[in-house]
Design a protein around this nucleic acid. Structure first.
Length: 551
RNA sequence: GCGCCUGUAGCUCAGUCGGAUAGAGCAACUGCCUUCUAAGCAGUAGGCCGGGAGUUCGAAUCUCUCCAGGCGCGCCA
């Protein structure tokens, strides 16, 4: 919708001999009386040209007027806005195009097949997913869908921290419970994992192996316990994610990076390039050369790799696999890690703007307004599983996506459940279901001209009501919203748009009857509904939320 | 101590790249179902955009400073 405006303004500027213009900014005015699309170009040119913005606007306007194109009205308003209002025929034409192409209408190729790697969730396989992981999953999934719809070649990846202290601690916790179950009163490890799931795993090992490991110290059967435990948890995580509607193309094991020598190779590359040095018996990465605030140890005095070493290898491998853009979605508590990882990618040649970290803020879980204490170590936490069982995956996902990812989120389980009828997700889904219901009615009444014939046979110019035109405009705004969401990596913009669209539809539905005695009008309105449905579905698909035929 | 995020209506949050009179949902209050799903609609009310200073034609948005909340600053993972 904005393309026509940009084109018209650019040509007008050209005939004014103004060609070195950066971007022509176009926005959707808040107030409908300010036209359909507005540009602030005259305001922005005022300073460089040293001319009054209204004067610039007038000059532009004169040059556009010579070729008015699809516009009904072009006005200068306020300090120098140029407001464009399209002709009704234009809306009808675009609506028809939308209906003919369906979802294809929205396939704007922004990414041009560029390969993007998006890593999200990446929870330690030391316990079930909690609600915070759920938020990361919802955001990551929606972002992947968003970029993928925009023509990017997206790979979804989960990084499995299956090496190191944490999984070992899980193994030790399981081992300890296993011993205690048979009466060996050995002390529980400090910071060990205490949830019921640990006991379940211990029990399972006991059922399978009986007393086999009772007389053995942990060191001798570490691989069995740790390996069994984290694989169990990984299966649990993967299962919950699948049920939450989240999928991955690849699960990258950290352990594998060690086993295959990827970490060692990466350290050698650092050395070759002169990016590392030895000091105090340890090996350091010169990350300050690439914007970090201090250098980081990669190989400890005792010869062990640090956690950062495997992260270097991991991110380097992302580059080696040929991704031009790398996006990591992390919990906000990891923000201190950004300069470190950024320095790695810069060291290996990725332009800075091609690495993006999206921080997902902590979810504060409430029940009836009261905070629910969560601590993974003590085993007191609400799992994603419980939230799914209690409030449902669609509600949870939608709520996660009604906020910017970096803003705090209070998630009240009781509210999400009890007020389910007022829940925004239902509001949007309801609009979709209502339309389906209208279609069903139409078929039952055998209304002619719908589904039996194509759009080309329908006279959409019967859509004359202001509410109808507003609805069509809203539909045509979608590509602009979509583009903004893609470029800013902000899926929540889609969520807000969908609520606005649903609101317009519900309002329209209450004011005007779709099915009436007037067959031609009915057909036109049915197709308008169809268009609304297509856009609702398009948006809900990106959010990963179902679009139900009936509710 | 240093760094990052947040502060907008009673509550939860939007607010496009610095633009027009600051927006929505919930809660509150008033109405609307013989007719396509009332999980809905129409309306009323609600604001010192945390405080202060600055930048300019113009600031919720940018800069500085202060206040409040959250988080991060290991040869831990």
């Amino acid at each position: 919708m904005k393309n026509e405006v940009i084109k018209a303004v650019r040509e007008a500027l050209k005939s004014l001999n103004l060609e070195n213009i950066p971007d022509i900014e176009v926005e959707i005015p808040k107030d409908e009386s300010h036209g359909d699309v507005a540009t602030t170009i005259a305001l922005n040119l005022a300073r460089p040209l040293k001319k009054a913005p209204r004067k610039i606007a007038e000059d532009i306007l004169i040059n556009i007027k010579e070729a008015p194109g699809p516009f009904e009205k072009i006005e200068i308003a306020g300090p120098g806005f140029i407001n464009f209002t399209y002709k009704k025929e234009y809306y009808i034409k675009r609506l028809e195009e939308l209906l003919q192409k369906g979802h294809e209408f929205f396939r704007i190729d922004i990414g041009k097949g560029k390969r993007v790697q998006i890593e999200y969730v990446s929870a330690n396989p030391t316990g079930p997913l909690h609600i915070g992981h759920g938020r990361g999953a919802a955001v990551g999934n929606a972002l992947c869908n968003l970029l993928s719809s925009a023509g990017y070649d997206v790979e979804r990846e989960f990084y499995v921290n299956d090496a190191g202290m944490q999984v070992k601690l899980l193994g030790l916790s399981v081992y300890t419970i296993y011993q205690q179950m048979s009466g060996n009163d050995i002390p529980f490890p400090e910071n060990g994992y205490k949830g019921d799931y640990v006991k379940d795993i211990s029990k399972e090992i006991n059922d399978k192996a009986g007393n086999k490991y009772l007389s053995k110290p942990f060191e001798e059967c570490e691989k069995v316990f740790t390996g069994f435990a984290y694989k169990k948890m990984l299966a649990n995580i993967s299962h919950d994610l699948r049920e939450f509607g989240i999928g991955f193309d690849r699960w990258q094991s950290e352990k594998e990076l060690f086993d295959k020598g990827t970490v060692k190779d990466a350290m050698e590359r650092l050395k070759e390039k002169g990016f590392s040095y030895e000091k105090d018996g340890a090996l350091w990465f010169r990350s300050t050369d690439f914007g970090d605030d201090k250098d980081r140890v990669v190989v400890k005095k005792d010869g062990e790799f640090t956690y950062f070493a495997s992260d270097i290898a991991y991110h380097k491998e992302k580059l080696d696999r040929g991704f031009g853009t790398i996006i990591d979605i992390w919990g906000a508590d990891h923000h201190g890690y950004i300069p470190r990882i950024r320095s790695v990618l810069r060291a290996f040649g990725l332009p800075e703007e091609n690495f993006k970290v999206i921080l997902v803020q902590i979810v504060s879980l409430l029940r009836e307004g009261q905070p629910v204490q969560m601590s993974k170590r003590s085993g007191e936490f609400i799992t994603l599983r419980e939230v799914m069982d209690e409030v449902g995956a669609d509600i949870a996902k939608f709520i996660f996506l009604t906020r910017r990812s970096d803003s705090h989120l209070d998630f009240d389980i009781e509210t999400a459940k009890r007020e389910s009828s007022d829940n925004p997700v239902f509001y949007v889904q309801y609009a979709f279901a209502r339309i389906s219901s209208i279609f069903k009615q139409a078929e039952e009444r055998r209304i002619q001209g719908f589904r039996s014939s194509g759009v080309q046979d329908i006279d959409l110019t019967h859509l004359k009501e202001d509410d109808e035109i507003s609805l069509i405009k809203k539909l045509l705004h979608y590509p602009m919203i979509f583009e903004g969401a893609v470029l800013s990596y902000e899926p929540h913009r889609i969520t807000f748009y969908l609520q606005e669209l649903a609101r317009l539809f519900h309002s329209y539905y209450n004011k005007h009857r779709v099915l009436s005695e007037d067959n031609k009008l009915t057909s036109a309105r049915l197709y308008l509904c169809k268009a609304v449905q297509i856009v609702l579905e398009e948006g809900l698909n990106i959010l990963g939320v179902r679009a139900p035929e009936r509710m």
